[in-house]
Simulated assay, not measured.
Amino acid sequence: MLNLVLFGPPGAGKGTQSQKLIEKYQLVHLSTGDILRNEITQGTELGLEAKKLMDQGVLVPDAVVIGMISNKLDSNKEAKGFIFDGFPRTVAQAEALDQLLETKHTAISGMIALIVDNEELKKRLLLRGKESGRPDDANPEIIGKRIEEYNNKTAPVANFYKAQNKFQSVNGIGSVDEIFASIATVTNSFN
């Protein structure tokens, strides 16, 4: 089973590249944001718990998110693998994910980090903000904070996977197809 963590700062191209990975390797996309919204919509026990917390403005605890991921894994037992999007964001989440996957007799195959310099990220996000109307992509100050938050919080997660020899970085600048070719080469090395 091929289980990938695709990482990169806002604007690095994760959404574009994850779609290409899903198509090429027939992976199931696991976006924690999508899973949360789906559990809430379906009114599951975990979804109701998450909604109650979100309504109070409180972050959903890792244990609840891990429970939702577990449900998603269980409902896709025939999957060739999964691509984790937006998770794990902390070392504690990475450790919890490893423990969960171990109970399912699988593991993270590798983490691929898209490397893009801050100036390019800002240009991409401002352009995306104009095209999509997303307010968080239209404000240079907010963009700077999002990039800083990513750099501060995710470096330890990258180190977590480096310690397991599961971390690979890919240059996230170039054409979509050039970047994907690099990602595919790395992905094939995990198989």
Rank of each mutant, 00 (worst) to 15 (best):
M1H: 12
L2Y: 02
L6T: 04
L6F: 02
G8K: 00
P9L: 06
P9K: 11
G11R: 06
G13R: 00
K14I: 01
G15V: 02
Q19W: 00
K20M: 08
L21C: 04
I22G: 03
E23I: 04
K24D: 12
Q26T: 14
L27I: 09
H29S: 09
L30I: 15
T32H: 04
D34L: 13
I35C: 08
L36H: 09
I40Y: 11
I40Q: 12
Q42E: 14
Q42Y: 08
G43P: 14
E45F: 07
G47H: 10
G47C: 13
L48G: 12
E49F: 11
M54Y: 02
M54K: 04
G57C: 15
A63G: 00
V65C: 02
N71I: 02
K72Y: 03
K72Q: 12
L73P: 14
K77S: 15
A79P: 14
K80I: 00
I83F: 01
P88D: 07
T90W: 01
V91G: 05
E95F: 01
A96E: 08
L97Q: 07
Q99G: 07
L100I: 08
K104Y: 06
T106A: 09
I108N: 06
I108T: 08
I115C: 02
D117G: 05
N118I: 07
L126Q: 08
R128M: 09
K130F: 02
E131H: 06
S132I: 01
G133V: 03
G133E: 08
R134V: 09
R134H: 10
R134E: 12
P135Q: 12
D137F: 06
A138P: 04
A138E: 14
I142L: 13
I142T: 14
G144M: 11
R146L: 14
R146I: 10
E148C: 05
Y150H: 11
N152R: 13
N152A: 09
K153I: 08
A155V: 13
V157H: 03
Y161A: 10
K162P: 07
A163I: 06
Q164P: 03
N165R: 13
K166P: 07
K166L: 14
F167Y: 15
F167R: 07
V170C: 03
V170T: 09
N171T: 09
I173L: 04
E178W: 05
I179D: 01
I179E: 01
F180N: 08
I183Y: 00
I183Q: 00
T185Y: 06
T185V: 09
S189C: 10
S189A: 15
F190H: 05
F190S: 01
